[in-house]
């Protein structure tokens, strides 16, 4: 019977001849191969000193964006938190007071915005869900830490600094 693709190869196990059975030639061959690798150029990238370039669509740490006037774009709509499969985002909304127009772009803003980086899987759904183009995963890779608290990133770490 033909198999589905007809690409099946039947392998026969040949009886090994004397030279194959004493193994030593094969071991010597193996030793010569490993010795070749011994002198090869190493592929190691010395990480903290040397960095490999990220690809175009690399998803790193989140940043909360500001608009052209330096006001925060996020309006605490909660769509990012809703779309987050890891339930990593929590936020508290607050109403903008008169005189705070230069700080927050919309009338409602997030007074607390936290992402738990231990839960986050860097899927980028929050970025896709955001109607205000307020959150992007354009940062570096997540840093290591000693305590769990250090992985809950608040607004102090997330909101991008004002560029004048």
């Amino acid at each position: 019977m033909n198999s589905l693709t007809n690409r099946k190869k039947v392998l026969e196990s040949k009886k090994m001849n004397f030279w194959e059975r004493i193994y030593l030639p094969a071991i010597l061959h193996g030793l010569s191969i490993t010795m070749k690798h011994f002198f090869k150029k190493k592929t190691t990238i010395y990480y903290p000193e040397q960095k490999r370039e990220f690809s175009e669509n690399f998803r790193g740490l989140h940043s909360l964006k500001r608009d052209e006037n330096g006001a925060e774009r996020c309006t605490a709509c909660g769509l990012c938190a809703l779309s987050c499969p890891a339930e990593a985002i929590t936020m508290t909304a607050a109403e903008r007071k008169p005189g705070e127009e230069h700080l927050y772009r919309e009338e409602k803003y997030a007074s607390v915005y936290e992402i738990n980086m231990l839960r986050c899987i860097f899927c980028g759904f929050c970025e896709e869900a955001c109607p205000k183009a307020a959150i992007f995963l354009d940062g570096d890779i997540a840093k290591a830490g000693y305590k769990r608290d250090e992985f809950i990133f608040g607004k102090d770490k997330l909101v991008e600094p004002i560029v004048k």
Binding site: T34, H37, F38, K42, T43, T44
Partner: peptide
């Protein structure tokens, strides 16, 4: 060290 060298590492 040599394990690394044999495996193209450092």
């Amino acid at each position: 060290k040599f394990a690394g060298f044999f495996q193209d590492r450092v």
